[in-house]
């Protein structure tokens, strides 16, 4: 009893301090602070849109192709829908919710986040096995992944989506498979470095299983670079979703999708430029924000280690 209390007391301040420490690392870098501000702006917008948007995002209740004005702050599109509302709700599918094909259910976490999570998980498993076990396992895994990298990404996306059909889960799967080789390469190089350390020898002399060594001895020490990479990949994923939307094979309606918004407004670009500019700006700021955040974080983390 007494022992448990001591343990709990010792844990509490360290956790709070650890959170504060990681936060102060972000604030020391100007680049990371700006990046974090941009990214959190969109997250907050998305959270608001869950409960409130100025108008319905799907209702065609205004005149078509209006420029920004006092009723529709960002104007309306070719079907007379409020662009601001559509933009706000468009954040949800990317960052906040994933629509499952069974019934009308959504799970938290956007398509970009789940996609990156998937590629991280798959990539780490493959990369750690290749790096730690080495030998012919390494050869086979890396040859297959290199072959995958050799294809242009957009071709892979097209092939996968035309073969499997549209849908949030399909896009997540596509992002997972296309992102995994890059993650695997990174995880492999980290594993190659970390497996030479003495604590890995110590685990081996204890007779630990390879899976324990890979996931509990190596992975926690590789998490820094992997997290930064994940951050960058969320940016790429958003970009990819935008591209797919533009090609008309992105996230399915009814939820508005930024890439799709650009695609539809493109046809009226000579009458109404605003409908193209707004979603494009949204994609750009979110991607730039995540990139800056990841860059700043990487710089600060590596400086911290010195």
């Amino acid at each position: 009893m007494a022992v448990i209390e001591v343990a709990a007391e010792a844990q509490r301040p360290t956790l709070a301090r650890r959170i504060w420490n990681s936060f102060s690392i972000i604030l020391t870098s100007r680049v990371a602070t700006v990046g974090m501000a941009l990214a959190s702006f969109w997250i907050i917008i998305g959270l608001i849109s869950v409960f409130w948007t100025p108008y319905s995002a799907t209702a065609t209740q205004f005149d078509q192709n209006l420029p920004p004005n006092s009723t529709n702050w960002l104007g309306t599109d070719h079907m007379g829908r409020d662009i601001l509302s559509r933009l706000m709700q468009g954040t949800q599918v990317i960052l906040l919710k994933t629509r499952l094909p069974w019934g009308n259910i959504s799970i938290p976490g956007g398509v970009a986040l789940w996609g990156v999570f998937g590629s991280m998980a798959l990539g780490s498993i493959l990369g750690l096995n290749a790096g730690y076990r080495g030998g012919w396992i390494d050869q086979i895994i890396m040859q297959v992944l290199d072959a995958l990298i050799a294809f242009p990404q957009i071709v892979l996306y097209l092939v996968m989506i035309t073969a499997l059909g549209q849908g949030d889960l399909i896009v997540i799967m596509a992002i997972t498979i296309i992102g995994a080789p890059g993650v695997a390469r990174l995880a492999r190089s980290l594993a190659l470095d970390i497996k030479t350390r003495d604590y890995i020898r110590a685990a081996e002399t204890r007779g630990e299983s390879p899976w324990y060594i890979m996931f509990l001895e190596i992975l926690p020490n590789a998490r820094g670079p992997l997290l930064v990479d994940a951050m960058l990949r969320v940016g790429y994923a958003i970009f990819a979703i935008g591209t797919l939307g533009f090609l008309g094979i992105g996230l399915p309606p009814p939820d508005p999708d930024w890439g799709n918004m650009v695609n539809e407004a493109r046809r009226n670009i000579f009458t109404n430029q605003w409908a193209v500019i707004w979603p494009a700006v949204a994609i750009a700021t979110l991607v730039i924000g995540l990139n800056l955040f990841a860059d700043g974080l990487r710089e600060e983390l590596s400086r911290y280690q010195k």
């Binding site: 350390r197 003495d198 604590y199 020898r201 110590a202 002399t205 204890r206 007779g207 001895e217 926690p220 020490n221 998490r223």
Partner: peptide, 19 residues
Amino acid sequence: IKELQMVFQNPDSTMNPSF
């Protein structure tokens, strides 16, 4: 395995920094 254990050379890498 339990009966044979080892102490390593480099103090900086003998412990896993994450635990």
